[in-house]
Amino acid sequence: MKTTISVLVENHPGVLFRIAGLFSRRGFNIDSLAVGTTENPDISRITIVVEGDEYIVEQVKKQLNKLVDVIKVSKIIPEDSVTRELVLIKVDAEPQVRSEIIHMAEIFRANIVDVSRKSMTIELTGDKNKISAFEELLKPFGIKELVRTGIIAVNRGANSIKIEEEN
């Protein structure tokens, strides 16, 4: 089972190390990890996809909460959230197959961001399923390189994951 967890942390050097270290020493598996600053530059948000049962997810949350640099840990409920990942795919594209690839990219609302004589680089945003489907379609052409950002997620509606500021 995969679970997405959103972690608000102090934007300090070494915080990511602590979190990655915690996962490795407690034997938790990270499926994907994305980090960036938030609307508040002092706070970073880490989105982690964890592989494991309910016990593992509970332990991950509790152990993360024990880190002094971790401010808030929230589980993202798939039905109540929007998750996105960005992927860059460099695919073999001889002139005779190019139009076919462009056509497919249009269907997926992907963008062609670079073209050379023998290859094209396509940018696609979406959830895991959409990205996998697109990847499958491109495979027969020959994928030279594939890079993903890792999943980021946000709750639907006005509800937001924020810290409660104290006076």
Binding site: F17, V68, D69
Partner: peptide, 14 residues
């Protein structure tokens, strides 16, 4: 040493 002791300190500071 902050890297080395991260797993078994409650917290550490450089």
């Amino acid at each position: 040493i902050t890297g080395a002791t991260a797993p078994f300190t409650k917290h550490n500071f450089l």
